[in-house]
Design a binder for these strands. Structure first.
Lengths: 189, 189
DNA sequence: CCGGTTTTGTCGGTTTTTCAACAAACGATA
DNA sequence: TATCGTTTGTTGAAAAACCGACAAAACCGG
């Protein structure tokens, strides 16, 4: 891909990320974005249909990045470990204001949906790798159950009193996940 | 100025700065620079005749930056103060590897010459602001004397054993400068 | 509800950058 | 010395970004 495209797209996306962490999405104008990205306004339109399209691409990229940096090659084993979970939670913590803002955007096919879908997919994938005695419907329901739950916990984590440390959250969450996964693996489930 | 020009020029200059702090100037190729700047090789040539031209512009920019950030508006008084000197020395210290490399480039109309000229000009300017009982020749010689001395001290500061702290250097240097300046101000000099 | 201001999305002409290719000069190695 | 690989500096055509201007839409205060 052309250097200019790559650079400008990343500049534009970063600009929106920054702005989102600063003020309400609806208050952000294309001008703000172009200005922050140090790019002509027309350039924004040449890559994205509008604010919402850009937001979508940003969310996708952000989630891809999250996956990349948390589930990268050196993940020990095919199985999501506690350490991986901690790494993920910490990464979310590090970008707390951004994630919080993304989660609070309503008008758009929301970040929560994207996040949930991604987790859903991950879970289905995991289930397919380990032979689970469950039909497709069962897998889908289980995945939906788990992904909703996890996203819910993350959302809760960001509510006013984010009293819980990343380590503590990981600990508690892991113990719940472990139970679910184990009962799933045992054939008599 | 066109956004693209500004951005690419600064990317190219920064690239050279980085590389200079890393390896010998003569070993640096235009390719290295373009690559580091994430810019097409042709773009480098469109702005600079060659390596040496680029280096020259870099030096100028670097010195302009040094002036900018050390002698900016809030400089207390028209007279270079001890605090200003300390700020300058610290700024040099912060970019030690870069300055060291710049000082060690020989083949080109060297950094030392640029630096010396700049200081020379500053001193002449200062002398003109305070009415000094000295003819132009006297001023030139004094400025040359001082600028050479100062540059020499800076060079010395970077020799293998940079044992002296920025604060200490400032302290010692200031006491010397003070004497010179004072004797210059007193009419019987 | 109106009038002024801001934002949006689009357009066309111009400038810059990109990319790939080139010949010439250089440097090292056999 | 001949040769291979690299670096240099230049070119031309294509792609992208720039800028300024535009009408339409949306927003806001009186």
């Amino acid at each position: 891909m052309d250097r200019r495209i790559k650079k400008n797209q990343s500049a534009i996306m970063n600009a929106l990320m920054q702005l989102i962490a600063e003020k309400e999405f609806e208050k952000i104008t294309i001008n703000d974005i172009a200005e922050r990205a140090d790019v002509n306004r027309g350039t924004v339109y040449s890559h994205y249909a509008d604010k919402y399209d850009l937001l979508d691409k940003c969310i996708e990229a952000q989630l891809a990045h999250l996956m990349e940096c948390c589930y990268s090659p050196e993940t020990t084993g095919p199985f999501p470990s506690k350490i991986t979970l901690l790494r993920t939670v910490k990464e979310i913590e590090n970008n707390a204001p951004l994630f919080q803002s993304l989660l609070s955007i309503k008008d758009v096919s929301s970040f929560r949906v994207h996040l949930s879908k991604m987790i859903h997919m991950q879970i289905v994938e995991q289930m397919n790798e380990h032979k689970i005695s469950l039909d497709d419907l069962g897998k889908s329901i289980f995945a939906q159950f788990m992904s909703s739950a996890i996203v819910g916990v993350i959302e809760w984590w960001f509510t006013p009193s984010m009293t819980c440390s990343a380590e503590e959250l990981t600990e508690r969450l892991w113990s719940i996940l472990e139970v679910n996964w184990m009962t799933l693996l045992s054939p008599q489930a």
